[in-house]
């Protein structure tokens, strides 16, 4: 066991896979000598050389398109899009090319690409560098979407994403980069589509993703002091979605809260609310409650951004109010 930051776990997890598969290549802006704008790829150039760890020009379409063309012809790629908001600049490649090609060709090809990108708010970067875009990605048939919340899961899910034959969007949360956690020695390989119950409880279920997981856990701690036993589920993966873990928890608790950083409309929690409403309606003791960022572009000011994104305080308050 070693303690490691989420940031270092990214390069560590990538290195594990680069060592395993000598074909694997990385493409992205400033990822080589610079070590990434968030220092998430530090040391990889030194370990794997400039052929496999490649700086690209500032050409997001070319980055993803090249990753796709390479992956279709024998070179799997980990591509980095610096900020997840920039996915909009290369949305065609993500939504029309990578995601649709396997289906459109009747299964003739797979596209083993991992699209790593720095997602989410909290850094006071303003609306074009802060959004949580997991719902943009989740809505595209043909993509898989993962978002780890701990250093250990960064490593395990990175391995799962790289080894998956389909394109996987891998969302690294900017506000988790400095957080630390234990990473066990040896190879860690997770499975996509497996959620984790990170705190057991009996009164209500809180489903969260990425940065919202530690916040939900803190809120659960405070709820416990009020005599409310909350179960917290770290989704880890939106596609595939582990509905089983959610449904079993709801069967036990009878109440469901989602804590989402993405803007409210069509956020991932809406899909979960719909699934639970459909499949576990009779298990519910009350309405599903979604705690989300409002439907706004994120503001830069600290006071405003902190108010927009669900905080421990807000999660706690909203749950207490409903559970009383």
């Amino acid at each position: 066991m070693a303690e490691m930051s989420y940031r270092d776990a990214i390069a560590y997890g990538i290195a594990q896979e680069m060592r395993r598969d000598p074909r694997l290549v990385m493409l992205g802006e400033d990822i080589a000598a610079a070590g990434g704008v968030f220092k998430t790829t530090v040391g990889l150039l030194e370990q794997f050389g400039p052929d496999r760890v490649r700086d690209t020009p500032i050409s997001e379409q070319a980055i993803l398109g090249a990753a796709m063309g390479a992956a279709m012809t024998g070179i799997p790629v980990i591509a980095e899009i610096m900020f997840s908001d920039f996915i909009a600049v290369c949305f065609d490649i993500l939504a029309n090319q990578m995601a649709k090609t396997r289906y459109m060709t009747g299964g003739q090809v797979t596209v083993p690409v991992v699209i790593r990108t720095h997602n989410g708010g909290g850094a006071r970067f303003g609306a074009q560098h802060s959004q949580s875009v997991e719902n943009w990605c989740m809505m595209i048939p043909g993509l898989k979407v993962v978002a780890p919340s701990t250093p250990r899961d960064v490593v395990g899910l990175m391995a799962a994403a790289v080894r998956d034959p389909d394109p996987v969007v891998f969302l690294e949360h900017k506000s988790l980069l400095a957080t630390k956690g234990e990473v066990p020695e040896g190879e860690i390989v997770d499975e996509l589509g497996v959620a984790k119950v990170v705190r057991e409880g009996t009164d209500c279920t809180i489903v969260a993703l990425a940065l919202m997981v530690p916040r939900a856990l803190q809120a659960a701690e405070r709820l416990a002091a009020e005599g409310i036993s909350a179960e917290v589920i770290d989704l880890r993966s939106l596609v595939p979605l582990d509905t089983q873990t959610i449904l079993s928890s709801v069967a036990k608790t009878g109440r469901l809260f989602t804590v989402e950083e993405n803007p409210r409309l069509c956020g991932w929690g809406a899909e979960i609310a719909s699934i639970v409403g459909h499949e576990a309606f009779w298990d519910l003791d009350g309405p599903v409650v979604r705690i989300t960022t409002p439907h706004i572009p994120l503001p830069a000011a600290e006071t405003l951004e902190d108010m927009a994104i669900p905080s421990v305080d807000r999660i706690y308050k909203e749950i207490v109010e409903v559970m009383d």
């Binding site: 052929d51 398109g65 090249a66 796709m68 063309g69 390479a70 012809t73 070179i75």
Partner: peptide, 18 residues
């Protein structure tokens, strides 16, 4: 998609080089 295959072709060429 008009020009949709151009970046893909570029990537396939990159793959041949690699």
């Amino acid at each position: 998609i008009v020009a949709g295959s151009m970046t893909i072709a570029t990537g396939a060429a990159f793959s041949q080089m690699m």
